[in-house]
Design a protein around this nucleic acid. Sequence first.
DNA 1: CTTGCATGTGCAT
DNA 2: TGCACCTGCAAGT
Length: 272
Amino acid sequence: MPEGHVIHRLAVALTEGFSDRPVRVTSPQGRFAGSAELMDGRVLIGAEAIGKHLFIDFDAPLAAPIIHIHLGLIGKLRLGPPRPVVGEVRLRLASPELVADLHGPQWCRLISPAEHDAVVEASGPDPLRADADPDRGWQRVHRASRSIAALLMDQRIAAGVGNIFRAEVLYRHRLDPFIPGKQLKAATWRAIWADLVDLMAYAVGTGRIDTVRSEHDPELTGRPPRVDPHGGEVYVYRRAFQPCLVCGGEIRSQLLEGRSLYWCPRCQRRKS
DNA sequence: CTTGCATGTGCAT
DNA sequence: TGCACCTGCAAGT
């Protein structure tokens, strides 16, 4: 259940753990069996993330030497010491010291370098990548009638942002989630972007989404941390009917384009 | 045991 | 806008 920071962490861990040597590639569950055989025993070159897409490059004389994984809503990739297979493992990468087990991915397939490039080009700018150009996102935002809350879930606008970062970054900027994108000022977009870069990089470093940090919000200095069930400290995400940490008002939630949006109507009144 | 929910996406209508 | 899909986990019966 990952936002982009999880995928970037996985890319780093896979590269550190497996690169430059042959890797056993199997499909205990069987659904990736034919493809796993093609890669089994080949040297893993490295892994890369863009948005929520994960690519694992192998040194193989094949048209499609790249494993392309998208975890979707429920997928998991677990790294750890060698262990028996537990549950439905679609793909296992293994060295003598390390195992990576893939469960429930939305996609797991072999792709060519050209297909890899097409995914990268179709993706919006990723706040976690140095090559990201936030103006590409702004070009879509500033002419959109959809709400800024809906736009932030659009991977062509800011790749890797998911439901948590969406809710939290809107809160941190005290923005009304329902204003249309075209109503947003360019300076506000730049501030949101800079905040995403900061918040997501922190999450890559720690493996947690902590958005309530006193260095960003002097109002909260000295307040004891409250960690929410997903494993981070947040203002509004999954806090419906609880009191806002800042104003004490009730956090609300509603479905927006099929996903739960969380916000504080009292704090989030900015309209541009 | 069963049900419902989850950090997501793509397809059909 | 709704739904199917992939799986694990927690809560309820």
